[in-house]
Design a protein around this nucleic acid. Structure first.
Lengths: 138, 138
DNA sequence: GATGATAATGAGAAATCTTCTCATTATCAT
DNA sequence: ATGATAATGAGAAGATTTCTCATTATCATC
Protein backbone atom coordinates (compact mmCIF):
# COMPACT_ATOMS: atom_id res chain seq x y z
CA UNK A 1 0.00 0.00 0.00
CA UNK A 2 1.68 3.12 -1.16
CA UNK A 3 -0.18 5.35 1.28
CA UNK A 4 1.86 3.91 4.13
CA UNK A 5 5.09 4.69 2.27
CA UNK A 6 4.04 8.29 1.91
CA UNK A 7 3.12 8.53 5.57
CA UNK A 8 6.37 6.91 6.66
CA UNK A 9 8.23 9.57 4.71
CA UNK A 10 6.62 12.20 6.94
CA UNK A 11 4.42 13.48 4.13
CA UNK A 12 0.69 13.97 4.21
CA UNK A 13 -1.36 11.69 2.05
CA UNK A 14 -2.66 13.83 -0.77
CA UNK A 15 -4.20 13.06 -4.10
CA UNK A 16 -1.19 14.20 -6.15
CA UNK A 17 1.21 12.09 -4.11
CA UNK A 18 -0.92 8.97 -4.27
CA UNK A 19 -1.52 9.38 -8.00
CA UNK A 20 2.14 9.94 -8.79
CA UNK A 21 3.37 7.03 -6.72
CA UNK A 22 0.71 4.71 -8.12
CA UNK A 23 1.60 5.78 -11.63
CA UNK A 24 5.28 5.06 -11.12
CA UNK A 25 4.51 1.66 -9.66
CA UNK A 26 2.08 0.78 -12.39
CA UNK A 27 4.39 1.94 -15.17
CA UNK A 28 7.50 0.34 -13.82
CA UNK A 29 9.88 2.08 -16.19
CA UNK A 30 11.73 5.35 -16.25
CA UNK A 31 9.55 8.44 -16.42
CA UNK A 32 10.49 12.09 -16.55
CA UNK A 33 8.58 14.68 -14.52
CA UNK A 34 6.96 15.80 -17.73
CA UNK A 35 5.98 12.24 -18.66
CA UNK A 36 4.26 11.92 -15.31
CA UNK A 37 2.55 15.27 -15.76
CA UNK A 38 1.25 14.37 -19.22
CA UNK A 39 0.01 10.92 -18.25
CA UNK A 40 -1.85 12.41 -15.30
CA UNK A 41 -3.41 14.99 -17.61
CA UNK A 42 -4.57 12.22 -19.94
CA UNK A 43 -6.07 10.45 -16.97
CA UNK A 44 -8.01 13.58 -16.20
CA UNK A 45 -6.01 14.59 -13.14
CA UNK A 46 -5.31 18.31 -12.92
CA UNK A 47 -1.99 18.19 -11.15
CA UNK A 48 0.46 21.01 -11.76
CA UNK A 49 3.90 20.41 -13.21
CA UNK A 50 5.47 22.18 -10.24
CA UNK A 51 3.73 19.74 -7.94
CA UNK A 52 5.04 16.80 -9.93
CA UNK A 53 8.61 18.06 -9.63
CA UNK A 54 8.14 18.83 -5.94
CA UNK A 55 6.64 15.45 -5.14
CA UNK A 56 9.23 13.52 -7.11
CA UNK A 57 12.00 15.35 -5.29
CA UNK A 58 10.36 14.55 -1.97
CA UNK A 59 9.98 10.91 -2.94
CA UNK A 60 13.62 10.82 -3.90
CA UNK A 61 14.66 12.27 -0.55
CA UNK A 62 12.42 9.72 1.15
CA UNK A 63 14.00 6.88 -0.78
CA UNK A 64 10.77 5.95 -2.54
CA UNK A 65 12.09 6.72 -6.00
CA UNK A 66 15.49 6.98 -7.64
CA UNK A 67 16.47 9.76 -10.00
CA UNK A 68 18.61 9.05 -13.05
CA UNK A 69 20.41 11.81 -14.92
CA UNK A 70 20.91 10.41 -18.37
CA UNK A 71 22.88 12.66 -20.64
CA UNK A 72 21.23 15.38 -22.62
CA UNK A 73 17.73 15.94 -21.41
CA UNK A 74 15.58 15.56 -18.39
CA UNK A 75 16.01 13.45 -15.31
CA UNK A 76 13.98 10.28 -15.14
CA UNK A 77 12.53 8.61 -12.10
CA UNK A 78 11.75 5.04 -11.19
CA UNK A 79 10.42 3.31 -8.09
CA UNK A 80 13.23 2.38 -5.72
CA UNK A 81 12.74 -1.36 -5.63
CA UNK A 82 15.66 -1.70 -3.28
CA UNK A 83 17.89 -3.56 -5.67
CA UNK A 84 20.42 -1.14 -7.00
CA UNK A 85 21.26 -1.41 -10.67
CA UNK A 86 22.96 0.49 -13.45
CA UNK A 87 21.73 1.35 -16.93
CA UNK A 88 22.28 0.81 -20.62
CA UNK A 89 20.60 3.41 -22.81
CA UNK A 90 20.00 3.13 -26.55
CA UNK A 91 20.93 6.41 -28.22
CA UNK A 92 18.49 5.81 -31.08
CA UNK A 93 15.25 4.53 -29.58
CA UNK A 94 15.82 5.44 -25.95
CA UNK A 95 15.37 1.90 -24.69
CA UNK A 96 16.72 1.43 -21.19
CA UNK A 97 18.07 -1.87 -19.91
CA UNK A 98 19.08 -2.48 -16.33
CA UNK A 99 21.95 -4.55 -15.10
CA UNK A 100 23.83 -5.30 -11.95
CA UNK A 101 27.40 -6.52 -11.89
CA UNK A 102 28.91 -7.34 -8.53
CA UNK A 103 32.41 -7.30 -9.96
CA UNK A 104 31.98 -3.69 -11.02
CA UNK A 105 30.42 -2.76 -7.71
CA UNK A 106 33.31 -4.27 -5.78
CA UNK A 107 35.92 -2.63 -7.97
CA UNK A 108 34.29 0.72 -7.39
CA UNK A 109 34.53 0.29 -3.65
CA UNK A 110 38.15 -0.73 -3.91
CA UNK A 111 38.96 2.31 -6.05
CA UNK A 112 37.17 4.68 -3.69
CA UNK A 113 38.98 3.19 -0.72
CA UNK A 114 42.33 3.55 -2.42
CA UNK A 115 41.68 7.19 -3.25
CA UNK A 116 40.32 8.01 0.21
CA UNK A 117 36.70 8.54 -0.82
CA UNK A 118 33.60 7.46 1.04
CA UNK A 119 31.07 6.46 -1.59
CA UNK A 120 27.72 8.12 -1.30
CA UNK A 121 26.34 7.21 -4.65
CA UNK A 122 27.44 6.35 -8.12
CA UNK A 123 26.13 6.51 -11.64
CA UNK A 124 27.14 4.13 -14.38
CA UNK A 125 25.40 4.54 -17.70
CA UNK A 126 26.47 2.79 -20.86
CA UNK A 127 25.30 4.54 -24.03
CA UNK A 128 25.07 2.66 -27.27
CA UNK A 129 22.80 1.11 -29.85
CA UNK A 130 20.48 -1.74 -29.06
CA UNK A 131 19.95 -4.78 -31.26
CA UNK A 132 16.81 -3.64 -32.99
CA UNK A 133 17.39 -3.39 -36.77
CA UNK A 134 16.46 0.28 -36.90
CA UNK A 135 18.88 1.10 -34.10
CA UNK A 136 21.87 -0.89 -35.22
CA UNK A 137 25.05 0.62 -36.61
CA UNK A 138 26.54 4.07 -37.08
CA UNK B 1 50.98 23.12 -31.10
CA UNK B 2 47.27 23.51 -30.62
CA UNK B 3 46.78 25.46 -33.85
CA UNK B 4 47.38 22.32 -35.85
CA UNK B 5 44.74 20.46 -33.84
CA UNK B 6 42.21 23.16 -34.65
CA UNK B 7 43.08 23.05 -38.31
CA UNK B 8 42.92 19.28 -38.42
CA UNK B 9 39.41 19.51 -37.05
CA UNK B 10 38.41 21.49 -40.12
CA UNK B 11 38.05 24.70 -38.14
CA UNK B 12 39.59 28.04 -38.87
CA UNK B 13 42.24 29.25 -36.50
CA UNK B 14 40.67 32.11 -34.60
CA UNK B 15 41.60 33.92 -31.45
CA UNK B 16 38.71 32.50 -29.38
CA UNK B 17 39.56 28.94 -30.38
CA UNK B 18 43.26 29.28 -29.67
CA UNK B 19 42.62 30.99 -26.33
CA UNK B 20 40.09 28.39 -25.21
CA UNK B 21 42.24 25.42 -26.21
CA UNK B 22 45.33 26.93 -24.61
CA UNK B 23 43.39 27.64 -21.44
CA UNK B 24 42.14 24.08 -21.19
CA UNK B 25 45.62 22.71 -21.75
CA UNK B 26 47.19 25.06 -19.26
CA UNK B 27 44.54 24.44 -16.61
CA UNK B 28 44.46 20.71 -17.00
CA UNK B 29 41.38 20.16 -14.86
CA UNK B 30 37.68 20.17 -15.45
CA UNK B 31 36.21 23.52 -16.46
CA UNK B 32 32.63 24.50 -17.21
CA UNK B 33 31.82 26.79 -20.11
CA UNK B 34 31.22 29.55 -17.63
CA UNK B 35 34.55 28.91 -15.90
CA UNK B 36 36.27 29.30 -19.25
CA UNK B 37 34.30 32.45 -20.01
CA UNK B 38 35.17 34.04 -16.67
CA UNK B 39 38.85 33.18 -16.80
CA UNK B 40 39.07 34.65 -20.29
CA UNK B 41 37.36 37.81 -19.05
CA UNK B 42 39.90 38.09 -16.24
CA UNK B 43 42.66 37.71 -18.79
CA UNK B 44 41.17 40.61 -20.68
CA UNK B 45 39.78 38.60 -23.57
CA UNK B 46 36.36 39.71 -24.72
CA UNK B 47 34.98 36.39 -25.87
CA UNK B 48 31.24 35.86 -25.70
CA UNK B 49 29.71 33.07 -23.66
CA UNK B 50 27.88 31.79 -26.73
CA UNK B 51 31.20 31.47 -28.50
CA UNK B 52 32.65 29.52 -25.59
CA UNK B 53 29.76 27.05 -25.72
CA UNK B 54 29.98 26.81 -29.48
CA UNK B 55 33.73 26.25 -29.54
CA UNK B 56 33.66 23.70 -26.74
CA UNK B 57 30.97 21.76 -28.58
CA UNK B 58 33.05 21.86 -31.76
CA UNK B 59 36.14 20.72 -29.89
CA UNK B 60 34.14 17.88 -28.41
CA UNK B 61 32.92 16.81 -31.84
CA UNK B 62 36.52 17.00 -33.09
CA UNK B 63 37.74 14.84 -30.23
CA UNK B 64 39.92 17.58 -28.78
CA UNK B 65 38.03 17.79 -25.51
CA UNK B 66 35.76 15.51 -23.53
CA UNK B 67 32.53 16.64 -21.90
CA UNK B 68 31.51 15.32 -18.51
CA UNK B 69 27.96 15.61 -17.20
CA UNK B 70 28.32 15.45 -13.46
CA UNK B 71 25.06 15.47 -11.63
CA UNK B 72 23.30 18.69 -10.76
CA UNK B 73 24.84 21.57 -12.60
CA UNK B 74 26.79 22.39 -15.65
CA UNK B 75 28.82 20.18 -17.94
CA UNK B 76 32.57 20.33 -17.52
CA UNK B 77 35.22 19.94 -20.17
CA UNK B 78 38.76 18.65 -20.17
CA UNK B 79 41.39 18.11 -22.81
CA UNK B 80 41.09 14.68 -24.40
CA UNK B 81 44.48 13.28 -23.55
CA UNK B 82 43.57 10.05 -25.28
CA UNK B 83 43.56 7.91 -22.18
CA UNK B 84 39.96 7.30 -21.22
CA UNK B 85 39.17 7.47 -17.52
CA UNK B 86 36.24 7.69 -15.15
CA UNK B 87 35.68 10.06 -12.26
CA UNK B 88 35.25 10.33 -8.52
CA UNK B 89 33.63 13.57 -7.37
CA UNK B 90 33.60 14.94 -3.83
CA UNK B 91 30.12 16.19 -3.00
CA UNK B 92 31.47 18.69 -0.48
CA UNK B 93 34.49 20.38 -2.04
CA UNK B 94 34.01 19.38 -5.67
CA UNK B 95 37.38 17.71 -5.97
CA UNK B 96 37.58 15.42 -8.97
CA UNK B 97 39.82 12.35 -9.08
CA UNK B 98 40.35 10.29 -12.17
CA UNK B 99 40.74 6.55 -12.38
CA UNK B 100 40.86 3.77 -14.89
CA UNK B 101 39.99 0.20 -14.09
CA UNK B 102 40.39 -2.35 -16.83
CA UNK B 103 38.30 -4.88 -14.96
CA UNK B 104 35.34 -2.51 -14.97
CA UNK B 105 35.90 -1.65 -18.62
CA UNK B 106 35.93 -5.30 -19.60
CA UNK B 107 32.86 -6.12 -17.56
CA UNK B 108 30.98 -3.30 -19.28
CA UNK B 109 31.80 -4.71 -22.67
CA UNK B 110 30.68 -8.16 -21.61
CA UNK B 111 27.41 -6.80 -20.26
CA UNK B 112 26.71 -4.80 -23.41
CA UNK B 113 27.44 -7.83 -25.56
CA UNK B 114 25.12 -9.99 -23.51
CA UNK B 115 22.30 -7.47 -23.81
CA UNK B 116 22.83 -6.88 -27.51
CA UNK B 117 24.16 -3.34 -27.23
CA UNK B 118 26.98 -1.76 -29.20
CA UNK B 119 28.77 0.57 -26.81
CA UNK B 120 29.20 4.11 -28.06
CA UNK B 121 30.18 5.73 -24.83
CA UNK B 122 29.81 5.32 -21.14
CA UNK B 123 29.84 7.44 -18.02
CA UNK B 124 30.87 6.19 -14.63
CA UNK B 125 30.95 8.71 -11.84
CA UNK B 126 31.35 7.84 -8.19
CA UNK B 127 30.02 10.50 -5.84
CA UNK B 128 31.21 10.65 -2.27
CA UNK B 129 33.31 12.50 0.26
CA UNK B 130 37.03 12.86 -0.07
CA UNK B 131 39.51 12.43 2.76
CA UNK B 132 39.96 16.09 3.62
CA UNK B 133 38.87 16.71 7.25
CA UNK B 134 36.29 19.28 6.23
CA UNK B 135 34.73 16.91 3.71
CA UNK B 136 34.68 13.73 5.76
CA UNK B 137 31.50 12.19 7.09
CA UNK B 138 27.73 12.68 6.78
C1' DG C 1 49.62 42.14 -50.36
C1' DA C 2 44.65 42.87 -51.86
C1' DT C 3 40.15 40.49 -52.76
C1' DG C 4 36.18 37.92 -51.90
C1' DA C 5 33.71 33.68 -50.59
C1' DT C 6 32.84 31.67 -46.55
C1' DA C 7 33.07 30.80 -41.77
C1' DA C 8 33.15 32.71 -37.06
C1' DT C 9 31.84 35.96 -33.65
C1' DG C 10 29.10 38.63 -30.16
C1' DA C 11 24.91 40.04 -28.16
C1' DG C 12 20.72 39.19 -26.98
C1' DA C 13 16.68 36.48 -27.60
C1' DA C 14 14.86 32.07 -26.93
C1' DA C 15 14.51 27.24 -25.63
C1' DT C 16 14.60 23.86 -22.04
C1' DC C 17 14.41 22.03 -17.60
C1' DT C 18 13.68 22.93 -12.88
C1' DT C 19 12.74 25.59 -8.71
C1' DC C 20 10.59 29.39 -6.27
C1' DT C 21 6.77 32.45 -4.61
C1' DC C 22 2.59 33.12 -2.69
C1' DA C 23 -2.25 33.15 -2.32
C1' DT C 24 -5.62 29.48 -1.88
C1' DT C 25 -6.95 24.92 -0.42
C1' DA C 26 -6.59 20.44 1.78
C1' DT C 27 -5.03 17.38 5.53
C1' DC C 28 -5.27 15.56 10.04
C1' DA C 29 -4.71 15.70 15.14
C1' DT C 30 -7.59 17.30 18.54
C1' DA D 1 -16.13 20.46 13.45
C1' DT D 2 -11.96 23.34 14.14
C1' DG D 3 -7.59 25.17 13.48
C1' DA D 4 -2.60 24.78 12.83
C1' DT D 5 0.09 23.44 9.41
C1' DA D 6 1.35 21.51 5.13
C1' DA D 7 0.37 21.05 0.18
C1' DT D 8 -1.16 22.75 -4.14
C1' DG D 9 -1.47 25.34 -8.60
C1' DA D 10 -0.13 28.97 -11.58
C1' DG D 11 2.96 31.72 -13.14
C1' DA D 12 7.26 33.98 -12.48
C1' DA D 13 11.97 33.26 -12.14
C1' DG D 14 16.45 30.84 -12.25
C1' DA D 15 19.94 28.17 -14.55
C1' DT D 16 22.09 26.23 -18.41
C1' DT D 17 22.50 25.93 -23.17
C1' DT D 18 21.30 26.90 -27.99
C1' DC D 19 19.73 29.86 -31.70
C1' DT D 20 19.49 34.06 -34.73
C1' DC D 21 21.46 37.34 -37.35
C1' DA D 22 24.03 41.34 -38.41
C1' DT D 23 28.95 42.29 -38.30
C1' DT D 24 33.68 40.85 -38.62
C1' DA D 25 37.59 37.84 -39.41
C1' DT D 26 39.96 34.07 -41.87
C1' DC D 27 42.38 32.22 -45.69
C1' DA D 28 42.74 30.48 -50.50
C1' DT D 29 43.42 32.72 -54.63
C1' DC D 30 44.96 36.20 -57.48
Amino acid sequence: MENQDIKKAGLKITLPRVKILTLLEKHGGHLSAEDVYKILLEEGEEIGLATVYRVLTQFEAAGLVVRQNFEGGQSVFEIDSGDHHDHLVCLKCGKVEEFLDTTIEKRQEAIARKLGFTIKDHALVIYGYCDKPECNQD
